[in-house]
Every structure is written in C-alpha cells, then in structure tokens.
Design a protein around this nucleic acid. Sequence first.
RNA 1: GCCGGAGUGGUGGAAUGGUAUACACGAGGGACUUAAAAUCCCUUGCCUUCACGGGCUUACGGGUUCGAGUCCCGUCUCCGGUACCA
Length: 1019
Amino acid sequence: MQQANGRPADAKLGPPPPFVLPLLDSTSEEMPVYSPQEIEKKWQAHWKTHQTFKAYNHSSKPKYYVLDMFPYPSGAGLHVGHPLGYIASDIVARYQRLQGRNVLHPMGFDSFGLPAEQYAIQTGQHPAVTTEQNIETYIRQLQQLGFSYDWSREVRTSDPQYYKWTQWIFLQLFNSWYNLDTDRAEHIRTLQEKFAASGSAGVRAAGEAEDRHDFSAGQWQLMGEKQKLAAILPYRLAYQQDTYVNWCAGLGTVLSNDEVKDGLSERGGYPVERRLMPQWNLRITAYADRLLQGLNTLDWPDAVKEMQRNWIGKSIGAEVTFPVQGHAGADIKVYTTRVDTIYGATFLVLAPEHELVDTLTAPGQRAAVDEYIAATKRRSERDRMSDVKHVSGVFTGAYAANPVDGAPVPIWLADYVLAGYGTGAVMAVPSGDQRDYLFAQHFDLPIPAISDAQKDLDQQADPTKEGRYINSGIVNGMGYKEATATLIAFLEEKALGKGKVNFRLRDAIFGRQRYWGEPIPVYYKDGTAYGVAEADLPLVLPEIDEYKPTEHGEPPLGRATDWKYRGQHEFELSTMPGWAGSSWYYLRYMDPENADRFVGEEAEKYWGQVDLYMGGAEHATGHLLYSRFWYLFLKDLGLVTGTEPFQKLINQGMILGVSEKILRLGHVLPASTSEAATNETKAILDAPFTKLKFSSMELPLELPTKNVFVSQDISDRFRSTPGVSEGTLTALHVDISQVDSNKLDLNKYSASHPDLKNAVFVCAGGYWQNGSFTKFPFGGSDVFLTASDVEKMSKSKYNVVNPDVLIDKFGADALRLYEMFLGPLEQFKPWNTNGITGVGSFLKKFWRLFHPEDGALAVTDEPATPAELKTLHRVIQKVAHDIDKFSFNTSVSTFMIAVNELTALGTHKRAVLEPLTLLLSPFAPHLAEELWAELGHAPGSISEAAYPEFREEFLVEANVTYPVAINGKVRDQRQFAATATAAEIETAIRESDFLTRFGEGKAVKKVVVVPGRMVNVVV
RNA sequence: GCCGGAGUGGUGGAAUGGUAUACACGAGGGACUUAAAAUCCCUUGCCUUCACGGGCUUACGGGUUCGAGUCCCGUCUCCGGUACCA
C-alpha cells in the first residue's frame, strides 16, 4: 500500500532494519571497503590463468561472434576515447555468454603501418621492434580494462605466419579473372581455355578494355609464354597498369582515394598530386554491383550504407558516339544520364587528358590548347578543389556531329571533365545542367530550351524531367520516359549509342613504395610478372640498412641485398597497403593456428559471419568496402560460405577531448615570405608593445616582450581595439593538467615553458609577470582564464586523458560504467572526468548492499518482499531490452535507480542480490566476480551462469495511480484498481469531485481513458 | 550543393504519441570533523508569489490529435560524410 505508485522512498520513513547500525563509526579503519585495485588485479589474473574466455570451435551451444575493429598499435597508447567501443562489445560478449552462447570475442593488431616506419626513418629502429613494444603496451592497457577476449587467438598482420595468407589471397586474385557470363571470379585457367577455343572475342570480362588486345584462337596458339602472359595480365583481378595515382612526396608513396582528404594525405597532412605510374591494382570494380546490392541485406547504420552507395556511385545512362567532322574514324564517346536532352547539346567538353585531343585540335587553336593543357597540369589537385567556381576551358577548333540530327557541335576542353570517369568526355546541355550553363555563359555559347517546363533559363539551368520536349526533333512533344526509350532505340539501331551503367568506384591501387608492409609476392622474369609459388610463402620482408628510398628513387625494398626469387629473379619492390591485412583478419580469428589454410573449412562454417562488428565510422568506405570485396571474391572461389562478412555493424561515436587554450596577443605579420617582408616581420616581433589599450582605457604600460597573454574574459576588448597594440589574438594549446575550471595554474605553466620567461599574463584587474601581480588602477580579478574547446583527443592538443590514471584511482569497473554512462554509444561526446565520481559511488553503494557497516558479508536467505522483487525484475527487463538496443547508458541509470531503491529498502537478501550481480556482471565484471565468489559460487564462474529470468507478475500492482488531466493538462492523481476497465474509470471520474474542483464549470465533452496510463477529460 | 545525424536545465543526458527534465555531474545549504578529505541528508528548469498557488518551457513557425520532445510541413543552427561524377 505504501508503495502504491512504485516509490519505495516511503520505506526510509520507517525504522531501519535491525542489523544496520546507525552511521556512527564510518571512518573506523577496520571497515574493509570496496577496493577495486585489489579485486580487479586478482580477477584479471584468474581469467588469464584459467583461460576463462577461450572459445572453442566445437560446441553444442549456438555461436555468437563479436568483433572489434582491431587497432593500429600507436606509440601513444590508448586514451579514454579508444575503449568506448571495446567496452560496449565486451558487454555484449559477456551478456551473450550469460544467454548460453558460445562466444568468439577476439582481439589483434593491425601492426603494419606508416607511423612505425616514419619513426624507423628518424631513429633507425627496426619498425618490428617499436611495433612489438607498442603492442605490449596495448595488451597491458586492454587487459587492465577487464575485456573478455580470447587472447589465444590474437593475430598481428605483420607476423609472417599471418601475412603468408594475406600474400596467398593476393595470389588468388592474381590468378583470377572476372567472367561476366557467370558473374563471378574464375581461375585464370578458364580464361586461357576460352582464348584457346575462340580467341579474345569469346570472352566477356569485367574491366576496361584499354590494355586488352583482340586476337583469334589461332593467334593465341602461336603466342609464346611471354606474349600470352602479357595478354592475360589486363584480365587479372590483381593487375599491373600505368595508373594515375595520388602521389604523396612527403610520405614517398602513393595513396588510395580514401587516404586523401582535401588534397592532403590523411596521415601527416602532406600535399598529394596526380601522377602516372605503373601500379598494382585490384579490380574491385568487377564487384561494384554486387557490393551495392549486398548493402540491402545488412543491418548497418544507414549513414554507412549510404556512404558506400555514394562511393560506388552507380548511375544509369547511355554512351553516345559523336563522330568528329573532318576526322574519319575519330569518334568521341560521351557518357550521359540524360540522353533525353541530347537535342540541347550545343557543345562537347573533353578532359584535357583525352586521347583524341591531339588529333582533332585545329592548327589555329594549337597554341591555345597546348597552353591550357600545360596550365591544367601545373594546377595541383588542391588548387582545383579550392577553385571550383572558376570557369576555364579552351576551344579545340574542331566540330563533332550530333548523332541524332547531324548538327555541328563545337568541341571544347575543360578541366571540370575528369579523365577517369565515364569516357572522359561529356555532351554539354547548358539549359539542363548548371555546370554546363555556367560554361556556356562564360564563353557565350547558346543555351536553347528543350522542354516546355523549363523556367528561368536566363538565370540558371533547369534540369526538370517534367513537361514535353521542344526543339527536339524526333522526341518533340514526348515526356521523359518515352523520349529516353525512343532515343536509346534510335541510337542503338544506328550503332551510335547504347544504354550503359557507370560506376564512380575506381579500381583499388594496391602498392605502396614503403618498407613496413607485406611484400607483394611477385617476381619478374624477362620483364614479365609471375606470382611466387604458394610453397614459397611467406615471402618474408627482408632486412635493409635504412628505411628510405634508394638513390635511384626505388622503394626501400630496393636496398635489400641478394633478395631474389630462387636466387635469380627480381622481386616486386612495393609492399601492400595498410588495408590488405585488415581485409580478412576476422576470418583468421576463427582458426588462427591453421598452418594449411587461411581458415579451416570447418571453423569457417561454424563461425560463419561476424554477428556484431563494432568500430569507428571513419572506416565506412575504406576497410568495410575492401573487406566485403575480398569476402565476395573468396566466396566465388568457394572458400567461404556466407554472403557478407559483417551482418550487424555499430559505429561507436568518438569521445572528444576538451582542450584548453590561452590567447596570445600578436602583431599583424606580413603575409608574404619575400626577404623584405621577412625583415619586416623580425622588426615587428622585436618591437615591444609600447602601449596596451584596454577597453576604453589606455594603460601606462611598457611591455618589453612579445609574449603577452590575455585572459579569456577580457579578450574581446582586444579583438576590437584597432591600432594601438597592432594586435591579433592567437590561441595556444595548454596542457589540460595545468588548468582547473578554466583557471590557468601560472606556476605550473611557467615551469613547463622556460622559454616564456618574462611573459606577461593580463587579467581583468592587472597582470602577472614572473610570479608577481601588478594591479591596474581600476581593480578587478587576478585570475587568468583559458578558453575551452571541444576537439579530437590528441597529443598535439594536450587534451589527452589517460585511462591508466583513472583506473588507478577509480578502477576499471568504474571507467567501464562511466564510458557507457556518458551517453548514447553512437553519439559524439566530450569527455569530462568529473562525472566519474558518480559511477564510483554507485559501485560503493552496490558493495554496501553486501557489506554493511562491519564489513562482513551480510547477505541473508530471507525471502524477498514484493517491493524488492519489483525492483529486481524491472532491472532484468530493462537491461536485457537496453542491451538489445545497444543503449548502455540507460542500463547504467537503471542499475543506479535499483541500488538507490534497495539501499532505501535496506535489502541484503540473496534472492535479490544474486540475480542483480549477474545482471551487472557484463558491465562491472570484476566486482561481479568478487561478489559472486563471496556468495559461495566457484571462483570465476559467473560467466557460465544463466541470465536471470524476467517474471512479469512481480511488476503487477493491485492499484494504479492515474494522472487525471483536463484538456491535456494534469490536475490530479487518482488511484484505481489495476483491473478497472476504462468505462468504470470514466464513470468514477464523472461522479467524483474532480470536475467541480478543476472543471471550471464547463460541460464534459469527452473522457479519454488509457488503461494503466492516464485519464484526460475534454471540456 | 547533395547525403546522413543532432538541437531538451549550468553540464552529460532520460522519456512504447500519455505526469517532460529520470539518472549523474556541477552548484547552494546542512550533518559529521579542530580542519580537510570521505560519507550522509536537503534544495536545484525558468518566471511569478511572503506563502498556498499560478504561468511558461524540449532550436523557431505552422499542422494532425482528446493529448506532440516524439508524427507531418516549412525555417534556422551545429556536427559528420561527400562533391566539377556528366
């Protein structure tokens, strides 16, 4: 009755249970308290020695595979942002074990990569050595967080026993081609059979035809080995070709498109330029459509699926041939998605790199064209990015004929047309395409309307598909669909065009001119590439003297001495990109010891797909796409049995750091870097601030230094003060350990910056210099304030929070809970260490349910009361529901509420606490193991227990308190029996004093009763 | 521009269309203490009122509904991705 509305708070009004002593001696030393440091070390050691979390490839239980994206072991170790996803996946892994599943939860390292190599170049240390050290740090940090990984399955991509199989998969790609007739990859043998039977004409293979030549079956028979291999090479799924690449001179290597951001390398931020180089490529484009279709079957975040769709970039259109006038046989193929607008095509635009440019340029335009091409080459990718709006182009002097009506169409060049997409040429329809419109406007070309629905053509292009076509020959008066079909039929009949699907996706460049990666298992005999025999794998990375390119500009592997295949043939010198090893590691975890196969057949079949993949959204178009590609390829070869590698994907959001910055008053420096300007800069920097204008007051200050810092609260007064200080404010990062609630600790700061002796720190009421404070005449604060900013955590921003420190102080269980408690898993959120005390005291309260004042275990075998059972079963229900939704923050809240309620109820009963311990164990595993053992269970056995069963009947109350509202506004609370029907409640309300009290005398129009929830009276 | 996502107290955030602000931090007050830490208790969205109470509030403007933080339409802001893709 007291708890009619489920508020056990009432209980605290009653007398305390007899065995709870009043809070008199809470500081007494002998009281053993919750000591996470001891408990956590103990159980981590226990799990390790007993291999508690070892997964077995044979089990009668259903399997569950929880995977974390494995880390690159950087030298900086983990910060508090890194474990977020690992904690969440560990909760799921532990929860699934309680649900009776055989759980595979592995961890490993993506241990090839650029940072270790850069460090090697600087220090001469072998990257393997630093990588090994970094991995040890990572393992230590991961273990002290209490993750339930099966460490016996750990893989490292730089381990020869692992990369042996990465190389092996490469060889399978090298030995395969993609047959469009069967729509799958096949061994190169079937290609040779086709060549032998019917020559190149009998083959429909994925990929561009550029390097492929036509030959008959007879010609094939006459070819020597070298010629045959040369003919096959452009069909392979791993092939070598001169390719425009993103060359990054700063890193000395090529990068893939997803490693380039805004014209700069993602790692290091060096400029990237386009360059034509012979490269190994993987023919991912063969899988474009399957990669696209497969997305529909995946339980992934929509954002990631959408990114992959955009990256693949399927477009449905037509390829149309425009014959060039006066150049017989010179045809320009354009790709268009709007063939219906072809009568509006008033000019063609080719990419400056287009192969016909040279042929068709008229003598009179030769000089202008050459100059334009040269200018285009000079422009770096970055310039082109930052200069999108600017229209440029040049007329070639040549004309093509519009294939539908023969009208002459001038041919232009412009760098807005990309050589690598479609055919490298477009038909420009200025009335329907804004880019073409701007071009036509700029060069004064006609912009004829083609549809009666187009509007405002004097302002902008109108790409509408509505209306009827005008000025459009054979499609005049038709609608969009009819016109498109009519035109394609017309063009196909004349052999001047055909419907075509295009993809934005490019083949993946697969070589890096670097040392610390998997050697590509290829050697050259007479200039022809051969795959290394499988029996000779792994092709081990050779030792070299320095990790730099050779003098001749060859990759570092060119330094290896006597490194020849079988003692005689040169090896390929580039290594694989970072994503090679990570494209299949999840398969190796299934069977990491297998020496005969990349994964054993049975193991692969048993574990199948990854059930839950946890990782960052930054891998949306790189790793996740490449992994799917390799999986589909392996499937074509019959080596894996599923359809997709990762069924469910969760992106954990990033935890951001809160940076602290101080503002330095600086001079306005000349932008130019000329010598005169440099001298001027020096002069300015050396000059003191003679006067500091501050608000409207001019201070009588001579500041003999260039290091004048301004407190954040008064910074605005300087920003808007023209002239006097010649000042601008620049923000400098300050280590967050030197700041407390935006207050800068000047002693700490000065101690860490000996170079800033004599620096002046201006506050609202005076300034600090060398430890002493000089007041301004008008008075004010002497506190120097910083400005806070939420940014990515990184060493360079001095805002990194180290988990080790927090674990020392609060314990891993508290850190795990707190990271989950911060907010929804998938959201980006700033880190604030202060809040961790909240989960810390929650754990202590939980502990005290078992160990009240005297410290001894005080759990009783008394039967639980209805109120206690209600609390327990609400938790059972809510937490299971939350874990299914990956809503861990609300689970933590639920635990807190339950512990608050049980503390108020004075509960110390096994019947409640034992199941509650199980519920908490995925979140705070160390504490749970400790209490579980204290409750008399075998040590370490909590993960083998069964999840408590939810029983609805404990939540049912005899009475329900209804909020009663008038017109949606709650006015009163009324109690009714839980079994009362809507009609009964309505009658009771109508007959009660409710309306006289709150109804303002109005007539009741309607009474809405939602049984169990609320009542609303409409007047 | 296009594609995602998000706007709720001082802060992190909660809320199957049904009592908005749970839980936690911070802040304020109190107890214990020589003092501090730790611990415990109380208060804490905003406005108004001595008080009881009343009014307002989920970025903004409309709409649907007995009832909207939640659904629909429009606008704004922020974050992420992507872009001369024909």
